[in-house]
Simulated assay, not measured.
Amino acid sequence: MSAVQPLPVAVCSPHPVVRTGLKALLRRHPERFRVVPAPDGPDREDPGVVLYDVYALRSGDDELADLLRQTSARVVAVGRELRPDLTSRALAAGVDGSVALGADEKELVEAVQAAAGPRAARETTRAPVSVARSGRLGERFGLSARESDVLALIVQGLTNKQIADRLFLSINSVKTYVRNAYGKIGAANRSQAVGWAIRNGFAAAADDAS
């Protein structure tokens, strides 16, 4: 029986320190991962998973749109706690999931491995995601970054199970985030939460992807 080959993983980030840090964590697990160059050239290997730093969306959406169109790799958005709007836009664009930049090593490893597992074919008809609206959604209402991510996906019509799969969370964790978010925005049910979110800008990512 042949040995299982390490999963090729690429890291895309505009910040050298982020690239270096994520690659260093991945290289601590050579039996699981093999760090490869980003798939941005004709002779580059198509990796199994790409970790994509959402901070790059601040300077435009073309890079992510091209990446999703040109590679068969699973793309995991690396989210920034103070910019959940960027994570939401990456999810709306069609990435396969997200992990927080502040995640610990175990969480990062689990997120990459989960992304490499079975999934439905990526939708290829989404429009490029816009990054023109870059406010910190939900901050003034006390929503955490993850609560904002969950609320943005609720607006897009995802079920709790679909949200759990997209964000690599357990269904119970999603339910907790939903319950906490509802309490902070004064919503008693999903319909009220969607109405509140639309009034407060959370529909932006869904509108951009339609």
Rank of each mutant, 00 (worst) to 15 (best):
S2V: 15
S2Q: 15
A3K: 04
P6N: 12
V11M: 05
C12G: 05
S13W: 08
H15N: 12
V17W: 10
V18M: 14
T20R: 14
G21C: 09
G21K: 08
K23D: 01
A24Y: 03
A24N: 11
R27K: 15
H29T: 14
P30N: 11
R32V: 08
F33W: 10
V35Y: 00
A38C: 07
G41C: 13
D43R: 12
R44Q: 14
R44Y: 00
V49F: 01
L51H: 06
Y52S: 04
G60Y: 09
D61Y: 01
D62I: 08
L64T: 05
D66C: 09
Q70F: 05
Q70I: 07
V75F: 01
G79Y: 04
L82R: 11
P84E: 12
D85F: 02
L86P: 10
R89V: 14
A93M: 14
G94T: 02
G94W: 00
V95T: 03
D96G: 06
S98W: 03
L101V: 04
L101W: 03
G102R: 08
A103C: 13
D104T: 03
D104N: 13
D104H: 05
K106W: 04
K106N: 13
L108W: 00
V112F: 00
V112C: 01
A115G: 09
G117Y: 00
G117K: 03
P118I: 02
A121Y: 04
A121M: 14
R122K: 13
T124D: 08
R126L: 15
V129N: 01
R133D: 11
S134L: 11
G135I: 14
G135R: 11
L137M: 07
L137K: 01
G138A: 12
E139C: 07
R140K: 10
R140I: 09
S148G: 05
S148P: 02
D149V: 03
A152T: 08
I154Y: 02
L158W: 02
N160A: 12
K161C: 05
A164Q: 04
D165G: 09
L167W: 00
F168V: 13
F168L: 07
I171M: 03
I171T: 12
N172S: 14
V174S: 09
K175M: 06
K175A: 12
T176N: 05
R179A: 15
A181R: 02
K184T: 01
K184Q: 02
K184G: 05
G186N: 11
A188H: 10
A188N: 13
N189Y: 01
S191W: 01
A193L: 12
V194E: 15
G195F: 00
I198W: 00
A205H: 05
A205G: 13
D207G: 03
D207F: 11
D208S: 14
A209L: 01
